[in-house]
Write a protein that binds this DNA or RNA. Structure first.
Length: 354
DNA sequence: GACGCGTGGTC
DNA sequence: TGACCAAGCGT
């Protein structure tokens, strides 16, 4: 096992990007940045981090906020469970831990939204604790360094990689060491066309020695991505439209949408699909009118083509409002957190009304 | 332990 | 344009 830390940290000191969360380091800022960075690239996170910190500058301000306000700041970033858990954890910490993040890996690990990686990252970066971290970048760097044939993500591969992350770790600068490995993975040891010529670890890298860097890390086969046809109803009454809140647990949980759903084989056509969905969700028959557009969108595990329709209620029919069903004017839609496609529809309505 | 969970960039 | 990829976590 070579000592990679010295050359790694030297490289990091010369090449680290200046990022918002690398100045004014505090446990709170480190925490917010690490949650945002889960499965999300640095360039995407930067503007969200800046806005979020302006809006919620410290842990008490986040704990006091409403979930809708937190989700609105998160809108567009995806994986909204991260925002719900961040908010929940802030409230827990202010109830039980004096509004302080614990300086302890196991205690961090128990907070909602903090798993093995994030606990190690916060502990090492914010508190200087010698805890390893393993993310997609470090998996790739270490897989190549060790020329690991086990697929990253497999149980055997994970075991080897976590042990390696711990063995390599600098006891002196663990936070910089973890960030340096991630920085190296993001800037040099990239998935395609890795820059081995300018890599500080190429001399120790088994993959580079054998020319196998482009074939690593090994990957398991991925299943085919299904494609669904879905419909959405913009139900209009006077100058208002109906929006519904999605349940907390699942896809786009807690966000608002124009109701609708998947086309089933039993549906004769798109309007029939939409009438069925609205009947099932809201208990009323709607009149389906003109098309408001067709939207394609790719989620992680499936793809949709969404057909939006202007709809109206027959005379005498009504829909009772509730916590999760509201009639709002197009200009009020901006206050309701939404996913990508529904926001596109909402914006087209605002433009139409203006 | 396998699966569900968003979105944007890249090639 | 479609497939791949990304500072993972919860159930």
């Amino acid at each position: 096992m070579p000592d990679i830390s010295t050359s790694l940290l030297d490289w990091y000191d010369q090449n680290a990007r200046q990022l918002p969360w690398r100045s004014d380091i505090s446990p709170y800022r480190t925490w917010v940045s690490e949650i945002m960075l889960q499965q999300t690239q640095v360039d995407t996170v930067i503007p969200y981090f800046e806005r979020f910190i302006l809006r919620f500058p410290d842990l008490p301000s986040l704990a006091r906020a409403s979930q809708a306000d937190v989700l609105r700041e998160w809108e567009g970033l995806g994986y909204y469970g991260r925002a719900r858990n961040l908010h929940k954890a802030a409230q827990l910490l202010c109830q039980e831990h004096n509004c302080q993040l614990p300086a302890d890996v196991e205690a961090l690990r128990r907070l909602p939204g903090i798993g093995r990686y994030t606990a190690g990252a916060i502990a090492s970066i914010a508190f200087g604790i010698a805890a390893p971290a393993l993310d997609a970048n470090i998996r790739r760097v270490l897989s190549r360094l060790l020329e690991l044939r086990e697929p990253a993500g497999s149980p055997a591969g994970e075991k080897i990689l976590w042990e390696a992350a711990g063995r390599f770790l600098s006891q002196h600068r663990p936070g910089d060491h973890n960030q340096a490995l991630m920085e190296l993975g993001a800037l040099v040891c990239t998935p395609k066309a890795p820059g081995c010529q300018r890599c500080p670890l190429s001399g120790e890298c088994l993959a580079y020695a054998h020319g196998s860097q482009n074939d690593l890390p090994a990957r398991a086969e991925k299943p085919a991505v299904p494609h669904f046809i879905v419909t959405a109803a913009v139900i209009q009454q006077g100058d208002k439209v109906l929006v519904a809140q999605r349940p907390q647990g699942g896809l786009l949980g807690g966000l608002w949408e124009f109701p609708g759903g998947k086309l089933e084989t039993s549906d004769p056509d798109l309007p029939a699909c939409l009438r069925r969905e609205i009947r099932e969700e809201l208990g009323v028959e709607v009149c389906v009118g003109q098309s408001l557009g067709v939207f394609r969108h790719a989620y992680t595990h499936f793809r949709i083509t969404l057909h939006a329709f202007a709809c109206s209620l027959p005379p005498g029919e009504d829909i009772p409002v509730s916590e999760a069903v509201r009639w709002v004017t197009p200009s009020e839609l901006a206050g309701f957190p939404m996913g990508k496609v529904d926001r596109l529809i909402a914006r087209s309505l605002q433009a139409r009304a203006a």
